[in-house]
């Protein structure tokens, strides 16, 4: 099965499962740069792989049964002698016995998979993800379950160990889904859903909200970045720290403007006066791969564009278009945010 999967991907001409909207120097020639990183069939974790295998088994079975039905129909219409087809035994054999047999086997397979998915180990890491309209708030939890730090729209996980996701919502129903790693699970007001899965190899996997949640449901995506445990530790240590100070004069000016413009009313940048809780935490914003929950690549240009035209780019989201910045000031704020690695 793994072989078929691999072949299909090659046949589709896309061996790109490891790349995102990556910065230009990495992305030559790969126009649909995100292709296959949100696919059910190109998976990178045990849960996703098992469902991928199940899918191929069912596709093959379904194709066989479809051929059988089409074949029987053609034979019934065009065939010569076919008295064996014209009595109720034929109907019972193929309409009752065959489906019962095939479905029983399939059901056993499916139930064992369901049971395996429901099994829980001691997770190596707990992450609480809260669905917001239309982005993802991500809390990393300590061993005691307390919030360690918060980030947004991008989830780093170590490879090879089970990670538990604690799924909540702050408004309507959303659904948390990273097809390369596992199936989806809803985020439902008043309920807490728990989901456990792991990534087998390092890579960038895209997730997207899978339950209709209003105006901008289409633009509510995120990345899961799986990294080797060592790299993950570095990442974690970096993210536990407050934001870095700007390295350039432009960045320093940007920081001042960020505070002065009142961005801190909605956004938090740890280590600064900005401590708003309405919008995504921006402490390490510059290190993320996307702006506006997976909607745009992240660089100084898109950051600047988002700040001044967020209502044009994603109408109805809570962030107003900030149109009162002079050009160079806008650049400064963008440079500051881009520098928050």
């Amino acid at each position: 099965m793994r072989a078929i999967t691999a072949l299909t991907i090659i046949a589709a001409g896309a061996t790109l499962s490891g790349c995102a909207w990556i910065l230009p120097d990495e992305s030559h020639g790969s126009r649909p740069a995100l292709m296959w990183i949100q696919s059910i069939l190109v998976t990178a974790g045990p849960t996703g792989n098992a469902i991928g295998t199940l899918s191929w088994v069912m596709f093959a079975g379904a194709a066989a049964i479809l051929l059988l039905v089409v074949g029987f129909t053609a034979y019934a219409i065009f065939g010569g002698r076919r008295t064996w087809m014209t009595n109720p035994h034929f109907v019972i054999a193929f309409g009752v016995a065959m489906p019962v047999l095939v479905l029983s086997i399939l059901l056993l397979y499916g139930l064992s998979l369901t049971a395996r998915s429901a099994a829980r180990e001691q997770p190596a890491l707990r992450i609480e993800v809260v669905g917001e309209r239309w982005w993802w708030r991500v809390h990393y939890l300590g061993a005691d379950g307390a919030h360690q730090f918060v980030t947004a729209n991008e989830i780093a996980i170590p490879t090879g160990v089970p990670v538990e996701f604690i799924l909540k919502t702050s408004d309507v129903i959303h659904s948390f889904w990273v097809p390369s790693l596992a199936g989806k699970l809803d985020m439902i007001p008043g309920r807490i859903n728990r989901y456990q899965f792991s990534a087998a190899r390092p890579g960038i996997y895209r997730g997207q909200c899978a339950e209709y949640c209003g105006a901008q449901h289409a633009l509510m995506a995120f990345y899961v970045v799986a990294m080797e445990p060592d790299r993950f530790r570095t990442w974690l240590e970096n993210h536990e720290m407050p934001a870095s100070e700007p390295a350039t004069a432009l960045g320093t000016k940007g920081k001042e403007l960020f505070i002065a413009a009142g961005c801190g009313a909605c956004h938090t940048i740890r280590g600064t006066a900005a401590s708003g809780l309405i919008g995504p935490d921006l402490t390490h914003f510059g290190g993320r791969r996307s702006v506006a929950a997976g909607s745009f690549p992240n660089n100084a240009g898109t950051i600047a564009g988002w700040i001044v035209s967020s209502q044009h780019l994603k109408p109805g989201n809570l962030m107003p278009s900030f149109v009162n910045l002079r050009g160079e000031d806008l650049r400064a704020v963008a440079a500051y945010l881009e520098g928050l690695k």
Partner: peptide
């Protein structure tokens, strides 16, 4: 109808399998 409905029925069996549905649901 026979052809199209059979196709739909077969994918219906697929999505009746909960693990597959966790992936395919709402796609």
């Amino acid at each position: 109808f026979l052809f199209i409905f059979t196709m739909g029925g077969l994918t219906g069996v697929m999505v009746a399998m909960a693990p597959f549905d966790w992936q395919a649901h709402d796609t």
